[in-house]
Each structure stands twice: as C-alpha cells, then as structure tokens.
Design a protein around this nucleic acid. Structure first.
Lengths: 251, 251
DNA sequence: ACTACGGGTTAACAATTATCAGTTGCACGG
DNA sequence: CCGTGCAACTGATAATTGTTAACCCGTAGT
C-alpha cells in the first residue's frame, strides 16, 4: 500500500515540498495509516464533530461546505495533494463540512501522530502550519474575487486557480484539466445562481476563453483568460511566486 | 511597560485563553519585546516582504488589504487581542498588506522567539496555530456572506461579527461599540460601493436595527439584527459555541 | 420502447446594485 | 471669516444578477 513513491508525494508539490528533508518526507509518508476510496458526496469531516484524525486527499475533488438554511454553500475547494482537514487538528472541531465532489481516494492520519510531530519535529510542524495558512490565503483571494469581480470574471478566476493548483500536482495540461464540478457547483462557488452561471459560461465561451463540458475544462488562451479575470497566481505560493521566498532553508 | 496584568491579556480572551496555563501566559507576555503607538494608515506588515516579527494588536483596528489595480480592498478586519500577522511566521511573506484603521497600539514579537516556542512548547504552539485558523474560519464566513447575502444583510452581518469579537475582549456593551471604520471601509468590506452602503445604512436604520455615526455603532435590537442578517456566532469559536469544545485540556 | 430524472439551456421579467453627477455639512488652515 | 477637502448623503439612470418557468437531451431503469 505505501509504495516507494510515497502516498504523500503530492503534498505541497510545486510549493514548499523542496524545503522538506528526505527524512521528513519519510516521516510524512509514515503518517498515513489507511487509505479509503469513497463515493461522491462523502462527508470527510462534519462540522462540530470532534476530529480525531485528518485527511490527505490523494485523488479526486473536495469542497468545503457551509449549510445556510438548507442550501449547501461552497466556501473552498481542494485538489489532490491537499491536507483537506489538517486544520481540524488545531481547531478540534470544524465550522464547516468537508465533502467529496465525485469519487475520491483518501489517506488518514491520526491526531496522535500529528501530536508527535508537533512535539518532535519543529520544522515539519511549521511546514504543516504553512499548508493550513495556504488555504487561508486562498480564502482571502476568494473574498477579493467576490467583492470585486463580476460573474464572468469570477468564473474565469476560479478556473484559473484550479488550473494552477492542479498544475502544481501535474494534473493539468496546457490545454486544460478534468474536474467533476457541475455548473451548480461553479455557480455556488462564484456566489451566483445556476441559471446565471450558465449564461456566463456561454458568454465566456463566446469570447473564446473557456470550454466546459462533461468534466473537461479547456483553456484555449489561458494568458488572456488570466488577464480577463484579473488573476495573479502569486497568492497560491507556488515555486517562483512573489510570496514564496527561500525563507525555509533554515528551521 | 509590562504590567502585572500583562500585555497579551486580550489574546484569545473569550475563546481558548482558559486552556493556557499560568506559565504559558507568562511565556506569552515575555514575547512582547516592544510596543509602539502608530497612526491611521500605518502598514504593519507589507505584502511580499520577508517578515521577521509578528504583531499583537493591543488597541485599535486593523484591516487586511489586497490591492487590485489601485483599489485597496478589505479582506479581513482585526480587533484588539488579535495576533494580526502571526501567520507571517509560518508563511514568511504575506499575500496582503496589514494596515491600521485609526491610531493603534502594537506589540512586537520576533520570529526567533516564536521559533523557540515551536521548539519547546508544543501546547502553546498548537494554541497559536489555532489562533491563525480562527482567522481562516472568519474568512470562510465572509465568503459565505458575500456569496449568499444581499447588501443590507451583509452590513448587519459584519456589524454583528464586530460586536461579538469586541465583546470577547470587553470592548462592546449591550447597546453597541465604538469603531473607526468609515462608510467607505464598510462598503469595501461588504463588497459594494460607498454610495450603495450609504443607502443600505439608511434602510437598516429605518428598520430600527442599527445606528452608525461618528465612530459609534448602536444596536437597538441585536437579537433581531442577528436574525435579519442570518448571523450565528459559532464560527468565532467563542466560549460556549458549538465549535469550541473542552478539547484542549490535554496537550 | 417508454418513462423518469438530472443536468444543461433559454426567455421574460423583476430585483438589486453600480455609475454618474451632483449637494450638504463639518473641520481645519490660512 | 473664507476657502478647501473629506465624508456623508441623494437622485436619475444603466448594468448586472435573480427568479420563474419552461424545454432539451442524454442516461438508466422497467
């Protein structure tokens, strides 16, 4: 089950992974106690329930969801390599649900093992901390997007973000990427309605910037889409971005 | 300068502070190396600049700001007791600016001292981690608010949030609270324009739910405003909330 | 083959919010 | 005292988005 390649090989790939020593990578891999394949709509971690483990997303997509009077609202998305509820380790109970979109492969890490990391591995602890704050940086960009952009730009923005995040883990190609999100999900994540997102998808397609069908997203002219959506990938802390320096050489 | 009461006495007050031992409180207080009074608009930590210290907000208000083509957009607010750029310790460089709104009193903590904490104080480390994730939880609620609510409800929501957060640190009273935010700032944080927020303020005032003038916010009927704004304070992880259990007794 | 269903699509109309172009009121410096 | 500047406020109009109510089109099941 735990191959030489390592179950955690996508964790922070394209970001801070290079700051990990070989030993730390081994420690990380040894954390995963069990993997599980789960179906669409599986609740990985429910809000308000005391968490005793955290989950690495090995394959598939996951949404952070907050219920608001019956409606399920997406407040975040996760892609393979993301430690989807690592923050449940520090928070103990989440304020939201973590739910799969489409089937997914999960790897579980008990909090007692994380506890050992915090006690014995200061550098690794800091890297784990970093990874939870990466989500917060993405949250902030979503806030900006929702405050500032109109629906067409929001759609472009989220698509660009997904492309970059998938590209970090080698799941995107120059022409686009695969994803299981329905128009409903995109609408939800863009703070608009299914009807409107449909119009918007059409409009952006007619600009020649974006194709979405049957789980496949095509970006005929990504640079132009990024310009159009006022997208700048720096906030993703990718290698070479403005915000990811060489500051992790030291402990 | 460092009184017996302690400069960090507001940190996590009303939340996890009770999980700290007396010794840990002492350690925390010893972190503050220097305090400084700064004017309105002071940049506490600039984006993309390598951070060597973090800042505790002792008095005043602070905004998290992202520039987008000249416009400064507020993506978060901080109140006294908040460790406003603690996440710069794990991230090293921030994706946004941290800026005072009105004059403020700051307390500085060097990252080398935080480094010592991470090495020697696993429980305190986890509490600090918790405090950064609290901001992420607030980010998520803002995302929900921007996705779901209309301007009147957004305004009510942000005001309710501020009341609760200030109440944790004893800076709110039953009738309201003081704050230096202008209508421009509120508009910004609600993802709307100054013109529109002005109309919205008027409308909510006419409902008898809210008064805002000259830095004073009055809430004649807070429970009703919370209902109106679909506000539920659980996400603030206050004592007694659904999400803050007794899970921190252990290390 | 027929039906049910979920997701995508469209049109007409209504509600919300942005934009533009001001006015008012107050505080401050000269 | 006057002028300047900033914040608050307002009206008219345009743009964006929401709502409602459909229809289309595959796929799965009977």
């Amino acid at each position: 089950m735990s191959e030489p390649s390592g179950l955690t090989r996508l964790f922070l790939k394209g970001r801070l992974r290079h700051a990990l020593t070989d030993r730390e990578v081994e420690v990380l891999d040894s954390l995963i106690e069990r993997t599980e394949r789960v179906p669409d709509g599986h609740v990985v971690q429910a809000r308000a329930v005391e968490a005793t483990r955290s989950t690495l997303l090995l394959d598939g997509f996951i949404a952070r969801v907050i219920d608001d009077e019956g409606a399920r609202n997406i407040v975040g998305l996760q892609v393979p390599g993301d430690f989807v509820d690592l923050h449940a380790f520090a928070l103990k109970r989440l304020d939201h649900d973590v739910v799969t979109i489409g089937p997914a492969l999960l790897g579980y890490v008990s909090h007692s093992k994380l506890q050992d990391i915090v006690r014995n591995e200061p550098h690794l602890t800091r890297v784990l901390w970093f990874s939870t704050l990466l989500d917060a940086a993405i949250h902030r960009e979503w806030i900006l997007k929702l405050e500032q952009l109109k629906a067409e730009e929001r759609l472009g923005h989220i698509v660009c973000e997904l492309w970059h995040r998938l590209n970090f883990v080698d799941l995107a190609d120059t022409h686009g990427f695969n994803m299981p999100l329905l128009q409903t999900h995109l609408a939800n994540a863009c703070g608009t309605t299914a009807v409107h997102i449909n119009r918007v998808i059409k409009a952006v397609r007619e600009r020649g910037l974006l194709e979405i069908n049957r789980g496949r997203v095509t970006l005929p002219d990504r640079p132009e889409l990024e310009r159009f959506s006022r997208f700048n990938p720096d906030y993703l802390y990718g290698k070479g971005s403005l915000y990811l320096g060489d500051d992790f050489k030291d402990s």
